[in-house]
Amino acid sequence: MSGTTAPPSDFAVYRTLVRWDWLREMKRKSTLISMGMMGLITLFLFSFAIPLTSDKADVLVDTRAGILWVTFLFAATIGIDRAFRNDAESGLLEGLLLAPISRPTLYYARVTSTLLFIVALQVVLLVLFLVLFNQRLEGEGLWGLIAATLATDIGFVTIGVMISAMTWSLPGGDVLLRILLFPMLLPIFNVAVEITDRAFEGQAPLTKHLGMLFAIDVLFLGAGHLLFEHLVKDSGGRP
């Protein structure tokens, strides 16, 4: 034991935390499987909720962007809900909070790992959606959708992780998470559906839309950076 080793930098801690989250999830896959199942079930629900016969093809053209995003939202919320719950149940979270890790580092690490899970989920769900609903995405539309989805996910996860930190320890916290989170996400959801709608038509997103997503991301990330600390401070070790 030398005792004189310098503490690791914030970035090293961040990298380790993200890697740890990812490796553990790859081993257990419980969150990814729950999210994927939820997404698949939502897609099936939509196939019953709207008429998909060939003479009513217009209905699907009008609703496909919304269907995709409602599916993403329902599935991804499971991942958001587990951002802290898993660690808390295994007692790891207490250790993390006692360790000399700066709160923003912990926040960014959780945002990144949750984002990774959600992006992995979306790739699978998007392919499933295109196949099951017989849709095509190509050219500018596809790239536009990818850029917009990433920007939307960042907004979604930055605020989601905050609310997850508020609700995981509460009785009925999983329901409360959705009640608190969904209204906050409506604006970003609105923009995402608009962009996706254009993407299915093969059009690139408007600068106005991407700019708005970017502005929202910066705003939410800043809010998370400043406020996350307050959620884990003097709370008896609980975030």
Partner: peptide, 25 residues
């Protein structure tokens, strides 16, 4: 104490979100 803490953070987040809600819509 926990309630106050969570509420204050949520209250601040909610307000930050108001211009977003307003302008995006």
């Amino acid at each position: 104490q926990r309630r106050r803490q969570i509420s204050a953070v949520y209250g601040t987040l909610a307000f930050i979100n108001l211009p977003v809600v307003h302008y995006s819509i």
